[in-house]
Design a protein around this nucleic acid. Structure first.
Length: 803
DNA sequence: TAATTCGCTAGACCGA
DNA sequence: TCGGTCTAGCGAA
């Protein structure tokens, strides 16, 4: 038989764990592999290698008690040669009847030795050992009972999944809907080709199916999922809201909520880091919200607020219909507005489907790359993804997977950070003719070039001269390649091949999109390895390794800057892997010749690249402290007129729109047009608008995240103060919530004056002039000799010419 | 409970 | 009420 792998989990039959595979051939089908058994390793120590056999027999006699006090034995004990921290070692391989027994024995075998690989989930263990990857096409033999006899082949493939997005609207007269009382009033769905709304009151649209009651509506939704044979159900924040709400309503209405393929179960929730993961029997489920959040974290999504509307706008460049969430109940009660609500509801499901279509290709490639099912990968952090990949590759290379650190050990690690990158202090000013160079994948290329790994550190096989010695003094093997450098090298090579292949395809073609997603997946993972080396809960934590990576990094960039100055360029600035050189009368060709000379002296896998030439750029001074330049804050204008801005207020979400827009226009006036007069008049106009009291409140909103519980703050910032007042007025503000507030006229301190946008009626013009607009533009205009007074009153004052 | 460090800035807080 | 210190958030890489 041939079918594509979708998911792996296990069921228990006669107290024995049996692997269950969900495969797709036309439809989802399930097969079982009873031949695979849970196991873990015990290392009895180097000095006891002669007693492996005796230890194995002793362990077979060992009895533990389960939670009910029943005695449990291991199934059997074999031995196996593996690489343990880079050295060959014979380990006890302990088989168990059930994955829960692995956990039971794990903590009780201290007298035998050190336990390894006892915390690998059974289904993942299966995928790792059998070298299975999601969506791959498997060839296999199975009997009539759907028991797999043998998997005879597997190859890379793609699968189209029957996908349906959904969304619910709830009645909310109190602001927040209460699942015990407030009904679900609409359920919208979209498969891409087909979409509609379920409700139980007429609304005058053609796409709504009107049912007799809320109960019938929920039942109809479950039917639809079954009818359409949904293989992948997607929602936006539905694991947190829509699914639990539907379940709670079903309970309140004493009806069933059955989404599962078994026709009995709804869904189960698993807590997973910061959010929940919902699983539905026999179907895949992906909550798009955590996926978008992940993409925002790595910079692939730029939007500061991750509402469905904002994200839709960013992806498709067009506005999505929206309603005032607090007034949904009013829309419901009003015959005319109910139609608007239905249209909005439908657009939610359709937008969710479209966003899912945008993000799933990348998630699919990540799943194939790290070898874990789609729903495990969606919303996983970079640390989890790197770990999945390394566990898989460690097995392939015959290496034992290191254990996770204890809580104390992790804490100790995080209290002991390493020195990071070098940032060159710039001098404030406006400069012409700048070349920007940067190292391509600096940290990954250092790790590969210098073989930085836990197992290659201080090896015993290389002499001092033979070793790679980092500027930090740490020594790495030059003979045997470590796990991390080998995996990373493979990733980088695959990515460069794909980038070449990409050029052969049309940008709109399916093939291009797939390859682009693959290239992106490789980049995301490759860039996360350095972080993983120093991540406190990492299995492969290597402090000396991480320290060596940054030390090499500082060495290479400083060396490049030194050589640039030697060659007659003026080094303006540099951060981690980049250097900004003023050409100083030199030509572009001379800059490129310099680049080539640097590359000649670098290891093979390292490369300095030309990021671009910029006719003009601005560095500003720091606000506080001495009048030095500010790091991580600059603006450049390219030869094509495009402006590259880093670090300024205008890229930050915790500044008002009016301040950011004014700063952006001032920067453009100076960089593009070179016009001081225009810049100054832009500022004056903004001040005039604010003074007139006519500035729209929406342009004055300052967004900030409430990262902790509202009552756990030592210092009450304006954002926290506004949020607390909103809570008093009946809104919910949990940790992680984004609040948008306005500084109003009422109150003494700025915090006193802060109110969330919905509660604000006026604004404090002086605050916005003196604390928002002026500080943000002064950073730039100071370089041109203007003072704050100049902007508030007349033109450039005589005092400036006093010296 | 989920990748790192470097750096800027505001506004609150606190003691003189 | 002034100035220094600290908390907190966000961005660059």
């Amino acid at each position: 038989m041939q079918a594509n792998l979708i998911d792996v989990d296990y069921v228990t039959e006669d107290e024995k764990a049996v692997i269950r595979l969900t495969l797709k051939k036309n439809r989802f089908k399930r097969f079982y592999d009873p031949s695979f058994e849970p196991y873990f390793y015990v290392d009895i120590g180097e000095e006891n290698q002669g007693e492996v056999k005796q230890a194995a027999r002793a362990l077979e006699e060992f009895t533990a008690k389960d939670s009910e006090g029943k005695p449990v034995n291991v199934l059997r004990v074999d031995s196996e040669k593996k690489l343990l921290f880079g050295r060959e070692r014979e380990l006890l391989k302990v088989f168990c009847k059930h994955p829960t027994h692995v956990r039971m024995f794990r903590d009780k075998l201290g007298k035998f030795g050190v336990v390894y690989e006892a915390d690998i989930p059974f289904a993942r263990r299966y995928m790792i050992n059998k070298r299975l990857r999601p969506f791959y096409k498997l060839d296999f033999d199975a009997d009539d009972e759907k028991r797999i006899k043998k998997i005879t082949g597997k190859k890379e493939d793609d699968v189209q999944l029957n996908t349906m997005a959904f969304d619910i609207e709830t009645y909310n007269p109190q602001g927040m809907p209460r699942p015990s009382k407030d009904p679900v009033i609409m359920i919208s769905y979209s498969t891409g080709e087909e979409s509609g709304v379920l409700s139980f009151k007429e609304n005058g649209t053609g796409f709504t199916e009107v049912l007799g009651s809320e109960e019938e509506m929920i039942k109809r939704f479950c039917e639809l999922v079954k009818e359409k044979d949904v293989e992948l159900l997607v929602g936006y924040n539905d694991a947190e809201f829509d699914l639990p709400y539907l379940r709670d309503r079903s309970t309140a209405l004493k009806t069933d909520f059955t989404l599962g393929r078994d026709g009995k179960t709804g869904f189960s929730l698993r807590s997973r880091g910061l959010f929940k993961q919902a699983r539905i029997n026999g179907r895949l489920h992906v909550d798009v919200y955590p996926v978008v959040k992940f993409l925002a974290l790595i910079g692939a999504v730029k939007s500061k607020r991750l509402t469905l509307e904002k994200v839709y706008e960013e992806f498709f460049g067009e506005k999505k219909e929206d309603v005032e969430k607090m007034r949904i109940w009013e829309y419901w009660e009003n015959n005319k507005q109910r139609k608007t609500l239905a249209e909005y509801s439908l657009s939610d499901a359709e937008a969710t489907k479209k966003i899912a279509d945008e993000v799933l290709p990348l998630e699919t490639e990540l799943a194939k790359l790290v070898g874990a099912p789609l729903q495990e990968v969606c919303g996983a952090t970079t640390g989890q993804l790197v770990e999945m990949l390394l566990m898989r590759e460690a097995f392939a290379q015959g290496r034992v997977i290191p254990n996770k650190p204890s809580a104390e050990e992790a804490k100790k690690r995080s209290k002991n950070p390493v020195q990071g990158a070098y940032v060159k202090l710039p001098e404030a000013g406006i400069y012409d003719d700048i070349a920007v160079f940067d190292f391509r994948s600096l940290y990954p290329s250092i790790i590969i070039s210098h073989n930085i790994d836990m197992d290659t550190l201080n090896c015993s096989c290389c002499s001092l001269e033979e070793s790679h010695t980092a500027p930090s003094g740490h020594r790495f093997c030059s003979k045997k390649k470590g796990l991390i450098p080998s995996v990373l090298d493979e990733l980088i090579q695959r990515r460069s091949k794909i980038k070449k292949e990409l050029k052969k395809h049309d940008k709109d073609s399916e093939e291009y999109k797939k390859l682009f997603a693959r290239s992106q997946a490789l980049k995301i993972i490759a860039n996360s390895f350095y972080g993983y080396l120093l991540y406190s809960r990492s299995r492969w934590y290597t402090r000396d390794g991480g320290e060596s990576v940054t030390a090499y990094g500082r060495h290479y960039i400083k060396d490049t800057i030194k050589k640039a100055e030697g060659a007659g360029f003026k080094a303006l600035y540099g951060d981690t892997d980049s250097c900004f050189l003023q050409l100083n009368g030199k030509t572009h060709e001379e800059a490129i010749a310099f680049l080539k000379s640097i590359n000649k002296g670098l290891p093979e896998k390292m490369e300095l690249e030309l990021e671009g030439f910029y006719p003009r750029g601005v560095f500003v001074s720091k606000k506080t402290g001495k009048a030095t330049g500010a790091k991580k804050k600059y603006a450049l204008i390219g030869e094509d007129g495009r402006i590259k801005i880093r670090g300024f207020e205008l890229v930050r979400r915790d500044w008002s729109k009016i301040a950011k827009e004014t700063q952006r226009r001032v920067l453009e006036a100076i960089l593009k047009e070179g016009s001081e007069e225009k810049a100054v008049s832009i500022v004056r106009d903004a001040i005039k608008l604010l003074k007139s009291g006519e500035a729209p409140l929406d342009d004055l909103v300052i967004y900030t995240q409430i990262r902790k519980k509202l009552n756990s703050y030592d210092i009450i910032s304006p954002g926290v103060s506004a949020a607390r007042k909103a809570v008093k007025a009946g809104t919910q503000v949990d940790a992680g919530a984004m609040v948008g507030y306005v500084i109003t006229r009422k109150g003494n301190s700025i915090s006193d004056k802060a109110l969330v946008r919905e509660m604000a009626g006026d604004y404090d013009a002086d605050y916005y002039i003196n604390n928002q607009v002026l500080p943000s533009v002064m950073k730039i205009l100071k370089e041109l000799g203007y003072s704050e007074e100049d902007l508030k009153t007349g033109g450039k004052q005589a005092t400036l010419f006093g010296f």
